[in-house]
Design a protein around this nucleic acid. Structure first.
Length: 553
RNA sequence: GCGGGCGUAGCUCAAUUGGCAGAGCGCCAGCCUUCCAAGCUGGCUGUUGUGGGUUCGAGUCCCAUCGCCCGCUCCA
């Protein structure tokens, strides 16, 4: 089975089209057609129903509470400073191919130029100063500092005299530690002058420097200047984190609980490829599950298992679905554990990520607490009520005055830990399309059939008069009009019955209801099953109940 | 981002050396048709991705651009 057949079917039958196709399309953007939007909506609804409305019982059999939000795509740009999307990715970066660590390209270059170990700011500054005193080529021309405006103190023009500058105090050095250094000239292009060795592991090759700021920029308001810059969100997660306090204060929830969101996100990918798999505009289905730090590993395993089970239940064959626990060297620096749920797509020999279930610790809320200055801690009233008498206090505030240790306080007041199951709606839609595609033979004729799970199928049933006479179309239309109040159904009276069945097979309609000569005699119709073409007779009056049973059961 | 290949009807593809843009499938209408792409009749489908250039004449040759595919690269 190859990808081209799926792309072709998607176009031919109206699942997915290239975006703005009559103008030649646009790389990395796709439109969902009439059947595609039904399929993707069914996927999003199934996720919302199964994760928000009715999540499986928790690790100890308890109810799991998930609340939904729908946040703005454009947020205050400082959100992206806190999340690390701006600061961490504004500058050209290089990666170590071996240990996978990432460095600021200018720092690596400078460290190599100055022949110092490591890429810490203090190391670099010290080396620069030493170079100056050794009257090497003026290193001040190499450097200046660009930090927050008030901290800009260019080395070559900071108004201090030489002597002072040569003897940076410990505090000054410490102050420099978190200020970025940037080269005044462009990065060297020739690979010969580029340091190829990783400063961390000392072995791996480094990639070419590349910009990692993949956020789409726009301007808020009429003025297109720097103060008006805003970004299309590159992930939906931050909208949840910045609303943590709002949800907590408005919803009478207690830890643990989750906040869910389905929404668009945008990344200006360098190289979109593989149909809709890596698009520049895509939709995420995310939960941020907040819990007590002590329980976090329990919930991490819970969500990993719940999410894998969900895919399986919706018809993804287990041998193509591959959960993969990330190795320690792959993890983001803040993550305690991450499981990628991967699917073996036809376009690759390697399974590709559908979803990441990440244990993010307290990283995100701590970052926002730091950048916003707002308290995002949680007070565990139940724990305090349980243990306060043993501590000999009634008031938490009074107890704080008695000088408990940080560890003790954090038993009752802490930044929650977060488990993040983050799924790609478009990626799963693509996986469902790949999984469903099948070719078999019926009576010696080749058949293309999309074996969607009935719950996901864009159209649940077709209503067909066997022939266009003997009042069959009238009876069929009556049934169609009754069923369409409850299900997406399709009426078709054009062409031979076999052809009509095949049309429905190709768009994955799980059931066909056919009105024939017997219908007028005893009020029964035939119900044909898509997957095996087996037909049974059912009373026409029972059709809607039968469909309901087969779709949900 | 780099290298290679490819863009012709809704889909799959033809079109001799640069010389009338075609076929199958599909789709639509009608006839026929009592269960798995049957048959008959008729019909629709194109600024050959887009924009330039060469030529008496360009789907075909040249340039640019957009898109798709493959391999590297990469994917917070």
């Amino acid at each position: 089975m190859d990808m081209e057949k799926i792309v072709s079917l998607c176009k031919r039958r109206g699942f997915i089209f290239p975006s703005s196709e009559i103008y030649g399309g646009l790389n990395g953007f796709w439109d969902y057609g009439p059947l595609g939007v039904e399929l993707k909506n069914n996927i999003k609804q199934a996720w919302w129903q199964d994760m928000v409305g009715n999540p499986p019982p928790g690790p100890d059999g308890e109810e799991v509470v998930i609340l939904g939000v729908d946040c703005a795509i454009i947020m205050n740009p400082r959100v992206w400073e806190a999340s690390g999307h701006v600061s961490g990715f504004a500058d050209p970066m290089v990666d170590c191919k071996k240990c996978r660590k990432r460095f600021r390209a200018d720092k690596v270059w400078l460290a190599a130029y100055l022949d110092v170990e490591g890429v810490g700011e203090a190391d670099l500054l010290l080396a620069v100063e030493q170079l100056r005193s050794a009257s090497a080529p003026d290193p001040a021309s190499l450097l200046h500092r660009v930090a927050q405006p008030k901290l800009v103190v260019p080395l070559e023009a900071d108004g201090r005299d030489e002597a002072e500058r040569h003897t940076l105090s410990k505090t000054q050095q410490k102050a420099f530690k978190h200020k970025p250094i940037r080269l005044l000239f462009p990065l060297p292009q020739a690979p010969a002058t580029w340091p190829r060795k990783c400063p961390a592991c000392g072995e791996g090759d480094l990639t070419e420097p590349r910009s990692f700021n993949l956020m789409f920029k726009t301007f808020v308001g009429a003025l297109e200047d720097a103060s008006a810059v805003a970004y299309l969100r590159p992930e939906t997660a931050q909208g949840i984190f910045v609303n943590f306090k709002n949800v907590l204060d408005s919803s009478r929830v207690k830890l643990p609980f989750g906040i869910a969101q389905i929404g668009k996100a945008f990344r200006n990918e360098i190289n979109p490829r593989n149909f809709t798999f890596r698009s520049r505009e895509f939709e995420q289905m995310e939960i941020e599950f907040f819990c007590q730090p002590a329980d976090s590993m329990k919930w991490y395993r819970y969500w990993r298992d719940v999410r894998i089970e969900w895919y399986t239940r919706l018809g993804i064959r287990s041998e193509r679905l591959r959960p993969r626990e990330q190795g320690k060297d792959e993890l983001a620096h803040y993550s305690i554990g991450t499981t990628d749920i991967e699917y073996l797509f036809p376009f690759s020999n390697e399974p590709q990520e559908l979803e990441g279930v990440a244990h993010r610790g307290c990283f995100d809320l701590s970052q926002h607490q730091h950048y916003s200055g707002k308290d995002l801690t949680y007070f565990d009233e139940a724990a305090w009520e349980r243990e306060k008498s043993a501590l000999g206090f009634t008031s938490f505030k009074e107890w704080l005055k008695s000088g408990p240790s940080k560890e003790q306080i954090e038993k009752y007041q802490f930044v929650p830990h977060v488990i993040e199951p983050s799924a790609g709606a478009d990626r799963f839609t693509l996986a469902v399309l790949c999984e469903a595609y099948d070719e078999d033979e019926i009576g010696g004729e080749k058949r293309v059939v999309m074996r969607f799970h009935p719950r996901l199928a864009p159209i649940k049933a077709a209503v067909l008069p066997l022939v266009n006479k003997d009042r069959m179309p009238e009876q069929a239309l009556a049934l169609y009009r009754q069923l369409k109040r409850e299900f997406p159904v399709f009426y078709d009276d054009s062409g031979a019955i076999g052809r009509r069945y095949r049309r429905q097979d190709e768009i994955g309609t799980p059931f066909c209801l056919t009105i024939d000569g017997q219908t007028a005699e005893d009020g029964t119709v035939t119900l044909r099953n898509r997957d095996d073409c087996v037909q049974v007779r059912i009373p026409m009056a029972a059709a809607s109940e039968e469909l309901r049973k087969r779709i949900n059961g």
